[in-house]
């Protein structure tokens, strides 16, 4: 009777075992790599959002629609003309199309407001376009993942010294140069 030798079968098992372990290692490597990619991607998103915040802030600070002008001379740095801010608000209220068709190309999803700290506390929203979604029932929800806010202190010039449209008074002081800040919030 021939003695059966099982060496070949052992050899096969060993080969399969090695390949199995190899693929397990590949799997671990892949999981590790994709996790790394995910974190990298999130970092990239944050970086892009920060860049967008910087760019939007820069554009807003130098926006001719609100920047203080000085006749033929160069515009005043870090200064916002409240007369123009109120006028811009009114123009956007009368023409909501400007918001969606024009300024959205400039600011994208963002909220921009001017807040006065001195002589009185008051806030004006220049641009508001939050990323919203709509449920089936028609109600809205915030659809943004991240928000980045930037603040810049600015001089607020009001040549009419607190007299707004239709001569309503929102501060009773003879102050032309007030103090406040610009808030730029961008969404992603």
């Amino acid at each position: 009777m021939k003695k059966m030798n099982k060496k070949a079968q052992m050899q096969m098992l060993e080969t399969i075992g090695v390949i199995f372990i190899f693929f397990v290692l590949i799997l671990f490597g892949s999981i590790f790599y994709f996790k790394f990619q995910e974190i990298s991607f999130q970092n990239k998103q944050e970086e892009l959002l920060a860049q967008s915040a910087m760019d939007t802030t820069l554009v807003t600070l130098f926006l001719p629609e609100i920047q203080c002008s000085r006749g033929d001379s160069e515009a005043e740095d870090n200064c916002i003309d409240l007369g123009k801010v109120r006028a811009l608000q009114q123009v956007l209220k009368e023409n909501p199309k400007y918001l969606t068709d024009y300024y959205f190309n400039l600011f994208s999803y963002a909220n921009i407001s001017v807040t006065m700290v001195h002589p009185v506390e008051h806030s004006w929203t220049i641009y508001e376009f939050e990323k919203v979604g709509v449920y089936d029932n028609g109600s809205e929800y915030s659809a943004w993942d991240r928000k980045e806010a930037t603040y810049f202190v600015v001089t607020l010039r009001d040549e009419l010294k607190g007299i707004g449209e239709n001569n309503e008074e929102f501060y009773n002081k003879e102050i032309v140069y007030g103090f406040g800040y610009l808030t730029v919030e961008v969404f992603s």
Binding site: N78, C79, F152, V153, V154, T155, K173, Y177, G178, F179
Partner: peptide, 13 residues
Amino acid sequence: YSTMSAVMKTELE
């Protein structure tokens, strides 16, 4: 810079 610039131009009552 912007804070300093604003502070210097501010009018106080």
